[in-house]
Structures are given as structure tokens and as C-alpha cells.
Amino acid sequence: MNIVECVNVTKTYRQGKMEVRALGGVSLRIKKGGFVALAGPSGSGKTTLLNIIGGLDAADSGSVIVEGNVLDNMSQTELAQLRLRKIGFVFQSYNLIPVLSALENVEFVMLLQGVPTKERLDRARTILDDVGLEGLYDRRPAELSGGQQQRVAVARAIVSDPAIVLADEPTANLDSKTGRELLEMMGEMNEQKSVTFIFSTHDKMVMDHARRLVLIRDGLLADDQDRDP
């Protein structure tokens, strides 16, 4: 079953008088439970594709369907609701809310979803334990290392059981050991919870961990390697 379906997606950015084509007609299907890396050099369009799949950006033409929801004509509020219920995000620079503790950052999405307090706290603590941050619940982002912050970001992305987690260069700011640990942790989440992970990356380690590698170059699909057994 396809959880993401992109059909002939195009996107062009305007920079002053210049037009820069980010995506030139990409079609892509991703199955539920996938662990997919969108790889390519900087400016290839991989982050643009990730943003369009996540409803953060709109395609100029083509169609995007996420778990049966056609994103093409959705309003900002409808897209926000879709992201809230179906999609988790992990960003390159963690992007935790600085005034909230690790526990509160993880709680935040469940708060928006209206999860009752006790359940929210239990789930937030459990997921922080799962990502190896037991006992660091009350630390603010500034009091955590980069690797710990990214673990909080992953915990935040998966705590509400989203259909997909979109991770934009998640290991770019981490050393290789911490990056590997994070990838292994996400791999476990993928296997245990059947959450679909889609990465944009140009990190070889991420590409090696991915079970499907989609290469994008100059806004077009250049290669698609399925490594599933």
C-alpha cells in the first residue's frame, strides 16, 4: 500500500528576476513502513520534495497524495491538521521550542491533538526513555547536547504515532557516532512501530542505512534503488 504518491510534481522558485527550477516533474510512490532516503547534492530538490510531501510547501503542478489525502487544494488550516495527525518532522538543526523542557517539547504535539494529561505525560516519558533520554525530562534544549536534542526531536516526531516521519538532513549537525546511533534508533522505530521514515540527505551513512535510495539530481529522479529483501 502506497502511503505517499507524487505524480509529476513541479516547483519553481523565483529569486528576484531569476527563476530556479527545484523540481521538474517528479513522480514517486512510497510504501507504508518504508525507510527511504531522498539523496542528492545540494540544490538538487530533495528538501523541496520533502517539504511538498509534508504539506509545508505547495507544488506548482502535479499531485501529492499522503495516506489517501490529496494535498493539492488544501487550505493552510487543513494542511496544519494533516501535519498534526499524520506527519512528524525532524529538522537538521533540531528546532526544539527553546522555552519548553524536553518533556514539554514531546508533549506539545499531543497537546495540540487534545490527548488527556496523564496519557500525554506517560507517552512522553516512555518515548524519551525509548530514545535514551531517561532522567533528562526537565532539561531545556540549551542544556542538551546536539545528539540529545535530535533524539528529543525524533521523540517529538514519533510520539503521536504519525503515518510518516519526514527527516531533513537529520545527521548533518551530528558527529558520525551520534549520527549512527540516531539512525539505528530510527531504524528500530521503523521496524517496531511500522512508521514510514523519509529522509532527505547527502550523508553516505544515511544512504547506507536506507532500505530504499531515491537519487534526485537537477530536480529530476535520477535513480531509485529498492534494497528491501
Binding site: L56, T77, A80, R83, L84, N95, I97, F108, L112, Q113
Partner: peptide, 16 residues
């Protein structure tokens, strides 16, 4: 601005 973008990415509506 970036923080607001992240909060919106997580599903916070503009009104909220």
C-alpha cells in the same frame, strides 16, 4: 520566525 515555522510545521494552526 523560524520557531513559528517549526510550530506550524508540527500542526499548529495560524489562529492558534
Amino acid at each position: 520566525k523560524k520557531e513559528f515555522g517549526v510550530i506550524m510545521a508540527m500542526g499548529t494552526t495560524p489562529g492558534r
